[in-house]
Simulated scan of single mutants.
Amino acid sequence: MAYTSIVELIDNCTDVEELIDRIIANDANERGISCEASFEQMKVLWEAMLASVNNYDGSLKSNSGLSGGDAKKYEDFRRNGGGVVGDLLANLITNALKVSESNACMKRIVAAPTAGSCGVIPAVLITLYNHRKANLASFQPSLIKDENVSKDDYNFTLDDKIVRSLYLAAAVGEVIAYRASIAGAEGGCQAEIGAASSMAACAFAYLNAGNIKQIMHAGALSLKALLGLACDPVGGYVEVPCIKRNVTGAANAVTSAELALAGIESRIPFDEVIDAMGEIGRKMDISLRETSTGGLAMTPTGRQYLPKQD
């Protein structure tokens, strides 16, 4: 897609459907395929996200023994009348845990944008898909500008609209990767969970009828909230604290999008927030960038999970 800034991404677009059509067309052109083929490939990723939740096995444990079964534990807790949060947040928590635990247990996931942050976007989209399906009526988008696509008007299903939101999230993720990083080894966990949360916030705002301005404020607000987050995986495994941070990232995405949809704006433009994240990552000590030589990994309990030296 080759987007280097949010300003460039939204340049000359006043309608979000037009923006997404352009993202799809750019992706297809870059990869030498039709827009329809590009869309079908993105739909496969959406279906894989659904499968990672639907095929969750609460009996599995990771090889390290650090994770597995927490999503089932939380579901049982809710089923027995526990908790004070509403169903949407409860299911957001459950879905983020399911996908992240599936990753730790070596099951199939979508790295969006990374394996360590794989639970954020699916949790947000699948929760919305399941809980607000009736509110997401089909619509007639502007036509994808591609000579290989029929010029007849057509409606998108709910699944198709969510697939379109993934293009929006992907474009935002590309800008973050270009201007800063999406790798914990380069920028700390803010670059992984922060980027995923920002991407998810944009998708959520779009799916709730946000305009371009609101969508980009949602992305900025969510990334701002996680600036400075260290990457300190216990024992070097992408499990503790990574899995629970996926829950935090998903909740942060939804709350940030809600703020933006209410008209609350980020005082710092999105591109500048991304640049600040990149600067913070570069200044972050190497021990807090996925080396497991600082932070939680070096607590007395964390040290117990370090690989044994021969």
Rank of each mutant, 00 (worst) to 15 (best):
S34K: 05
Q41G: 08
E30T: 10
D27F: 07
E36T: 11
D57L: 07
N29C: 05
N26G: 11
C35S: 10
S38G: 02
E30M: 02
I33R: 00
W46C: 05
K43V: 08
L50T: 09
Y56V: 08
F39E: 13
A51P: 03
G58D: 04
S34E: 01
D57T: 07
W46L: 13
A28T: 08
F39V: 15
R31K: 15
D27H: 08
W46V: 02
A51K: 15
N55M: 07
K43I: 05
D27Y: 07
S38R: 13
F39P: 10
V44G: 03
E40H: 14
C35V: 02
Q41C: 09
W46E: 02
N55G: 07
S38C: 15
E30Y: 07
E30D: 10
A28M: 06
K43Y: 03
S52F: 08
S52I: 08
L45S: 04
M42W: 06
A37I: 07
L60C: 12
D57N: 15
L60G: 06
F39N: 09
S52Y: 01
L45C: 11
G32S: 04
N54K: 12
D57K: 11
N54T: 13
V53R: 03
S52H: 01
S38A: 13
K43N: 12
M49C: 11
M42Q: 15
C35E: 12
E36G: 14
N26D: 15
S59T: 12
V53D: 01
S59L: 13
E36N: 11
D27G: 05
L45V: 04
G32F: 04
A51T: 11
D57M: 07
K43L: 14
S52E: 04
E47N: 14
Y56C: 09
M42E: 14
V44A: 12
N29M: 07
V44T: 08
V53I: 05
E30P: 03
D57A: 10
A37L: 09
E40L: 15
G58E: 04
G32M: 06
E40A: 14
Y56M: 11
D27P: 04
L45P: 02
E47L: 14
V44F: 03
E40G: 10
C35L: 07
V53S: 10
V53M: 04
G58Y: 00
N55K: 08
R31Q: 12
A37H: 03
Y56R: 12
E40K: 15
V44I: 09
A28E: 00
C35R: 00
A37E: 06
Y56I: 09
D27C: 09
N29P: 00
V44P: 05
E36F: 08
E47Y: 01
D57Y: 03
L50P: 02
L60V: 08
A48Q: 12
D57W: 06
V53W: 01
V53L: 05
G32W: 04
S52R: 01
N54Q: 11
R31L: 09
C35K: 01
D27V: 11
A37D: 10
L50Y: 01
A28F: 02
W46P: 00
E47W: 01
E30G: 08
A48F: 03
S52L: 04
L60A: 11
C35Y: 01
